[in-house]
Write a protein that binds this DNA or RNA. Sequence first.
DNA 1: ACCTGAACACCGTTCAAGT
DNA 2: ACCTGAACACCGTTCAAGT
Lengths: 208, 208
Amino acid sequence: VSPVAPRPQRRKRSQYHHGDLRRALIDEAVRTIQREGVEALTLRTAGKHLGVSRTALYRHFADKAALLAAVATEGFRTLHSELISSWKQAGQGRDGFHAMGIAYVRFAVANPSHYRVMFGGFVKASECDPELMTEASAAFQVLVNSLVEQQKAGLVRHDDPEQLARFVWATVHGVAMLAIDGQLGQEHGTADALIRFAIERLGTGIGL
Amino acid sequence: VSPVAPRPQRRKRSQYHHGDLRRALIDEAVRTIQREGVEALTLRTAGKHLGVSRTALYRHFADKAALLAAVATEGFRTLHSELISSWKQAGQGRDGFHAMGIAYVRFAVANPSHYRVMFGGFVKASECDPELMTEASAAFQVLVNSLVEQQKAGLVRHDDPEQLARFVWATVHGVAMLAIDGQLGQEHGTADALIRFAIERLGTGIGL
DNA sequence: ACCTGAACACCGTTCAAGT
DNA sequence: ACCTGAACACCGTTCAAGT
């Protein structure tokens, strides 16, 4: 009634939806997780931020875990595309492999909370939705392909490519996790230094 | 009143404590986490299981995060001693190193939820208590010592031992995490196969 | 160093009823 | 495919008061 508009009055028309409430909910969740961490994400405030009732969410997701699964899927999709672009931009081969490792850790360090949702056990392995599985294995396949190519070029041992890929993945994932957890010390750039060292020694080994 | 004893009547005397309620709370928390996961741990039921009021907990811990920090500390202590014993039992050197890697992953796979509390971001790096720091770096030091010894024996490259240790730790930690997350497939024993492969290739490298 | 009991400000989720 | 509003069964945490 007054010209200063006391309340945001949340929605001017009586029109329901957002066009794509599902999309909006995922984006809102990603934003909140990125800014304040997973534990700060509540369905109530997520709905409020979108000007939507508390219960509207249940039209698109079975429960909170399902929302988090969608967030994780989104993360794998982004990671996947960043790996591919860094792989291609570095001209594939050995350099591409190197670039992918760095890009992987960079993604994790830049989006620590999001990365945690992808790997922190929020999504149970048994009940994971097929879309997440698809997206996750697509990202993994980029690594496998890279290793196979390097095997053909005589750059990498002829071990089982899948096992090789799991090994490399574990190392890169481990560096990312330790960096996110603050286990590498608080100095800036230690994660970058470690992943460079790791990729180097991944090739040569640590033995004499 | 009846001989069948309808209720456990929770505490027969009016005597307060447990001798060591702090200890009992940590043990109860570890048990619950191990059996049902971190998200199942509530302070209210923890107190109930111990026959203690809901608020008694706050005499020993500032809040729930502090309890979880104590649980994490406990985990590092156990991991530390298991690493040392497997290292010694395998006769140190190259075999000891190998055994430690396997023992590390075994600990994580045997206590997945507990391991997650240690590394899942429940304890903020900034506000971590000194005891946790001490215990964590003690476990890390076992690995550093092992590498230095192998360097002296001419088995390992003369890189900076700390960096070398971080690299090895990342790999082992990565294998453990992927195994816990179910990313290695559901077949039994894949984690064991991968860590053996990983330790082997850690030495030789994956290059030709 | 513990206890009880009440209270506060939250949660996720469900349901009945609307449009 | 959304909405409101009320309700349920939980949370962690605090406080006042006891022993």
